[in-house]
Design a protein around this nucleic acid. Structure first.
Lengths: 201, 201
DNA sequence: CGATATAGTAAGTAGTTACTAACATGGAAG
DNA sequence: CTTCCATGTTAGTAACTACTTACTATATCG
């Protein structure tokens, strides 16, 4: 989006950030080392002094910008809430995380072909993590007799899948910038369907 | 998958198919015209005689291999079925279509950065089409008083989103080859949640 | 002050890539 | 038979790209 330079922090940090942005906006192959150095405001040779090759820079970018989902942290507080309200928060938090980490999501989708293993690793640390957090929450509710009997892992997939696909269609493919209000309304609709579909009768 | 040649049809057809495969397996930038020609079993210059440039070849590939979703065709027969059974068929048919058209889906996801407009066009003709087909089916059931009141377009998104995300996670990211049985079971679970969550009470 | 680390400038290399030019070949059609 | 037309072969070009080498400048630190 913003083509601006990165002018704070050490050369290494600036390179990592410039590379991260560039890879996410133009893809790995579509990005040149010259361009990254320019954006970072350093000489191209400095890039190769810090990272031996373009590929190692890419690896460092992934290592640096792969985040841990914060959903895990909010689960304890959520167990106190009503089911529907809890799912609303989980869905919205997941969607916001996707939005914040859009650059990383773009890299994952673009680079599945070129670096399947690297992408799989991130996917595992990110999506699978959230998935298992949500399924253990659902299992807990089942054991307390609040939900009907269904595979909680499948349920988690169903719910997060709705949210992810919505994000993919609007933000990634259509290039939109979703507003708070619209996100809330949409998640709300998803929650109503999901909660109604999983409640005990 | 198979690195084999394409040895039937005219040179033009062979080029289109070889390019389609290559683009989907290695991305647009990761594919060379030399490689396409080799796979098609023709001289590289023949490629440029048929298509003026690599980019125009790409456009022709998209034009040629963009398909019309067949979901629309089966809707009439489905209106006769019970809601749950109908959704099962729709979900499974959608998933199978994604599987058959996996190459195109890969291209779409990989090339959002490079050619956003081209990808948007395909997405519109493919996903949006299915989406509106399903929402009109849901609206119909609502009007017949069989479903509770909810935005049918949101409902369609929810359901197809579950299926798409499942496909993305398993086939695209994890590189698996989903078997009939597993697809049926998963769609079945999705359907149960969705149907229960949208039925009139 | 002197050593060390970090950065820049400049020049270049070897490989690749999309794309072109020129000419030869073979088959189908009139 | 001859005229096309689609194709192959060969050679080449201009641009780009990841990466290197060699030398210089600056700032920090003991």
């Amino acid at each position: 989006m913003e083509g601006g330079d990165v002018r704070k922090g050490s050369a290494r940090e600036r390179l990592l950030e410039a590379a991260f942005r560039a890879f996410s906006e133009k893809g790995y192959l579509g990005t040149t080392t010259r361009e990254i150095a320019l954006k970072a405001g350093v000489a191209e040779v400095t890039l190769f002094r810090h990272f031996d090759s373009k590929e190692r820079l890419f690896e460092e970018v992934l290592k640096t910008y792969t985040f841990l989902p914060k959903l895990k942290g909010i689960i304890p507080e959520i167990r106190e809430l009503a089911y529907e309200e809890a799912m609303r928060i989980i869905g919205l938090e997941f969607l916001k995380t996707l939005k914040e980490e859009k650059a990383l999501v773009m890299i994952m989708l673009s680079e599945v072909n070129l670096y399947p293993e690297k992408v799989r690793t991130i996917h595992h640390r990110f999506i699978d993590e959230i998935l298992s957090t949500l399924s253990s929450y659902l299992r807990d509710l089942q054991e307390r007799g609040l939900l009907r009997d269904f595979d909680p892992s499948l349920g988690a997939r169903a719910f997060l899948g709705m949210v992810f696909s919505y994000f993919k269609a609007e933000e990634i493919v259509k290039g939109r910038d979703l507003k708070e209000r619209e996100m809330e309304d949409t998640v709300d609709g998803f929650v109503r369907i999901f909660v109604e579909g999983t409640k005990g009768r």
